[in-house]
Structures are given as C-alpha cells and as structure tokens.
Write a protein that binds this DNA or RNA. Structure first.
Length: 279
DNA sequence: CCCACGACCTGCTGGC
DNA sequence: TGCCAGCAGGTCGTGG
C-alpha cells in the first residue's frame, strides 16, 4: 500500500504498536524480496529494541538500539500484521519475515508480489545510502513550494505525470496522487515537465500538499483488501476525482459530459485525467 | 546526465 | 462454470 499517505499511516501504526519492543528472533521465510536480504540481516536485528519509526518518501526507517537503522519498503503489495501474545506462530501465505519480540508478541511482513525491500545498516550510513540519497523534497515538510518543484522539473523533457513519479523530483508521490494532484492543479498530464513553472508549479505544489494531507487525514486509500496494522482500512479512495474513474464524470468540471475522465498509458502506468479541466 | 522500456512477482477481474 | 489476457498503489537495470 504504497504512496506517502499509506506509508505514513503504517508508520504511525508501527510506532504505536511496537516502539521500545525488543526483537528476540527474526525468521526469514525466503531468501529475499526485490533483492536478497543483506548478510547478517536477522542477526543484526535480533536482541535490539526498536526506538522509533521514521519515514522518508515511501521508505519506513526503524531506529534500533545501538545505532542501527532497519529500512523497509513495501513495494506494491507489502503489509504488516501484528501477532498477539500467545500467537501460534503459524505463518500465512506470503509471510516472508516473521519477528518475535521478547514479550511474546510478534510481527509478520507479508508481500505476495515480493517487490518490497529491507535493509539494515549503521545510522552513520543513512546519509549516503543509495536508496535514500537521491530522494527529493518531502512535500509535507517546510520549504516545498512551486519554486522548489519547478527547479526539480527544469531540464526534464518527459511528461509531467511521469516526472512526478520520479522520487528524485518529489518524495512519496505515486500513481494515484500524481493523477489526483494534476487534476486539482488543472494541468494536462502529457505536458512536458520543464514547462511547469511559475503559477503552474505553485498550483501543482499546493495540490500535491493538499491531496497528501487529505489522504493522510482519511488514513490513506484502501484498494483491494489492504489493511492497516490494526485491521482498519483507509477511506480516501472515496474522494478520488479521476483515479479509476475512466468513462465517468470527474465531478467538478463544467463540460456537462457524463464521461469526461479518460485513461491513457504513460511510462507503462495508467494515467487518469479530465481533458476538459486539465490543460 | 536523460529517457523509454522491460523485468521483477502473484492475484484478481473481466471478457469470452 | 472455466480459462486467460491484462492490469495492479513501485523501482531498477539496460539499452539508446
């Protein structure tokens, strides 16, 4: 469940459920996810207490006792499930990592498609970690505005929709929120990225912030059967203006058409947009 | 450096 | 009912 609002919601759930728990045992139920687990992955986690959970783009970072960071990416289909004290330890299908804490509770990482990723490294290596170093500004942190966005888009000839999915441009935007933000900003997803500047860039930066904040307040979006840690689901999917609405009205434009929302393919992903409102 | 595209996986859906 | 192509919230490697 992977864009910024969903990852942030999961981070909060992990923090609430697991902060200060001590990892007793880590069981890897297959050799790897998107890549192999690093050497000594389980051994490095074992025996350490979790001091807190942070997020950067779509990555969750768990700070471990003794100056280590456990890095997690959920890919397309990763999810966590807490295991109550006295759980029988029987894994479910696609549980790839099972963690037991010293108080008898546990945590299972489940990921059918195995596009997720995990790593562990010393805190001092975080600043230069190859997955983290290239990431662009966090849209919900101070300083992200139209000027910053325009600077990041300058020189990019690719379509603005494709550029928004590049984590070096802005952190945490994925396919849903790229479509929704472009819709709100009234920008055609096919426009060349470097042409988005000035007022357009300001409108787009604002739209990204607004849609992320609103989604966060709704607990993210739940497509298919994805769940939060506690089993609850987000409900921002009910607020989509265009995502998944091809052939339906966008709801806001004045075109009077009953089916203004179109879907096209860009960079191998589906883009939803309203050609009347988005120019 | 930039960009386009296929690869990586499994599961679900919709059309026949 | 069954089968299968196509698609799914992401990223990375390999070409040009």
């Amino acid at each position: 469940m992977p864009e910024l609002p969903e990852v942030e919601t999961i981070r909060k759930g992990l923090a609430k459920a697991l902060e200060n728990r001590r990892i007793k045992r880590v069981t890897l139920r297959r050799a790897g996810l998107r890549s192999l687990f690093p050497k000594n992955f389980a051994e490095t986690l074992e025996g350490r207490a979790i001091r807190g959970f942070r997020r950067r783009a779509k990555y969750i970072l768990a700070d471990l006792e003794g100056g280590y960071v456990w890095l997690i990416h959920l890919g397309m289909s990763g999810s966590f499930r807490t295991l109550a004290r006295g759980h029988n330890g029987a894994p479910e299908k696609h549980d790839h990592v099972v963690i037991e804490f010293d108080d008898g509770t546990g945590l299972a990482y489940n990921d059918p498609r195995r596009f997720g990723q995990m790593d562990v490294f010393e805190s001092a290596q975080e600043a230069t970690h190859p997955a983290l170093k290239p990431i662009g500004p966090e849209p919900l942190e101070r300083g992200f505005d139209g000027a910053v966005l325009a600077e990041r888009l300058s020189g990019k000839k690719t379509a603005i929709k494709v550029a928004l999915l590049d984590q070096r441009v802005v952190a945490g935007v994925g396919n849903i929120y790229a479509c929704e933000a472009l819709y709100r900003a009234g920008i055609d997803p096919r426009r060349s990225a470097h042409l988005i500047k000035g007022k357009n860039a300001a409108a787009l930066a604002s739209a990204i912030k607004d849609v992320m904040r609103e989604a966060l307040a709704s607990g993210g979006s739940t497509l298919r059967d994805h769940r939060q840690l506690d089993g609850s689901t987000g409900y921002f999917q009910h607020s989509f203006d265009v995502y998944g609405h091809a052939g339906q009205p966008c709801g806001h434009c004045t075109c009077q058409k009953k089916s203004c929302v179109r879907s096209i393919t860009q960079g191998g992903r589906t883009t939803f947009f309203c050609p009347v409102k988005q120019k």
